[in-house]
Design a protein around this nucleic acid. Sequence first.
DNA 1: TATTGTTATACTCTATAACTATA
DNA 2: TATAGTTATAGAGTATAACAATA
Lengths: 156, 156
Amino acid sequence: MAESQKIHHFDVNDEVLESLVGYNLKRAYMIFQSDFRATLGETGITTRAFSVLSLIAQVTDITQSEISRRLGIERSGLVAIVDDLQEKGYTVRVPVPGDRRIQALSLTKEGKKAYNEAKQAIAIHEQNLLSDFNKKEVKQLLSLLKRLRKPEDSVT
Amino acid sequence: MAESQKIHHFDVNDEVLESLVGYNLKRAYMIFQSDFRATLGETGITTRAFSVLSLIAQVTDITQSEISRRLGIERSGLVAIVDDLQEKGYTVRVPVPGDRRIQALSLTKEGKKAYNEAKQAIAIHEQNLLSDFNKKEVKQLLSLLKRLRKPEDSVT
DNA sequence: TATTGTTATACTCTATAACTATA
DNA sequence: TATAGTTATAGAGTATAACAATA
C-alpha cells in the first residue's frame, strides 16, 4: 500500500480536474491563503482585514459601502472586520457632515504602523511563493488573473 | 456621493492589493466559485464533491486517504463529502480483502451519470468565464497556476 | 424609493486534535 | 509505531434577508 503511494506523481493525477481553470485556481489560492496565515497569523490580521486596511490606507475617509464594492465583500460581512480593526485600535469611524448615514474610515497611528509591517511581511511571503517566477512571468500571471475579473467588473 | 462612485474605474483601485498575486488569485477564484455554484447549485454538487467524484471516476477503488492526498483535503473533511455522495446514491464504499482498515470507493450507475452531466455543465461554465481567452492563453494560465503548486507537491 | 450601516442566520470550507481498529 | 477512517469542535468566509436611520 505504501509502495503504490510513492509511485503516483503529479502528472498521474486526474486529467479532468487538472484541465479545469477553476480547480487550478483553487489549489493555487489555497497555497497562498495558508502561507498568508502562517505569515500574519500571530498578528491576528486575516486576508480580508489586510485588504480593508490597505484600502483605507490608500483611500482616506472611504466608507464601508465603498470598500464593499471595491473588494467584492458584502456590506454585512464588513461590519465584523471593521469592528475588529477598531478594537485593535487600527481604524476609527468618523462622522461625515452632510450625510449622517455614513462614517468615514481612517487609520490611526498604530493602524499605519501595523499596515506597513504587514505589507512588508506579505512582500516576503509573495517572494517566497514566487521564487521560481521571473518578473515577466509574474506580470503575465497578474495580467491573466485580472482579465478573469474584468467581465464582472464591467457589469457593475 | 453616487457621482463619485461612477467615476471610480478598475484601474483606480488600490495599487498595493492589485500588485499582489494572492489577492488577484482570490478575486479570480471567487468568480469561478460563485459561477460554479450557480451552475451546479441545483444538483447539490459542491466544488469539493465534484473533485472527489471526478477522482473516483478516474481512479477506481481509490481510498479516502488517497483522495485526501491528491486533492489537498483533510481526511476528516472527506468523511462528510463521501457520506453525502453515498446518500445521493452516487458512490459506494467497498471493503478491501487484505486490509480491513480501508474501503475502496467506486461510482454507481447513477454516480457515473451525475458525474458526466456535471462535467458537461462545468465545461460550459468554464467556456463562459474564459470566453475572452484564446487556447494559448488558457494553456499559459494553467501552466502558471500549476507551477505555483509545484513547490508544495515536491515537499510531499 | 434608495442607500448606509447593522443584526441575525445558515452554510461551506478549513484546521486541529483525538479516538478506534487495524496493520 | 504508523495508517485509515471517523468524530467533534472551532474558526474563517460567504450569502441572504431584514431592519432602522437617513437621503
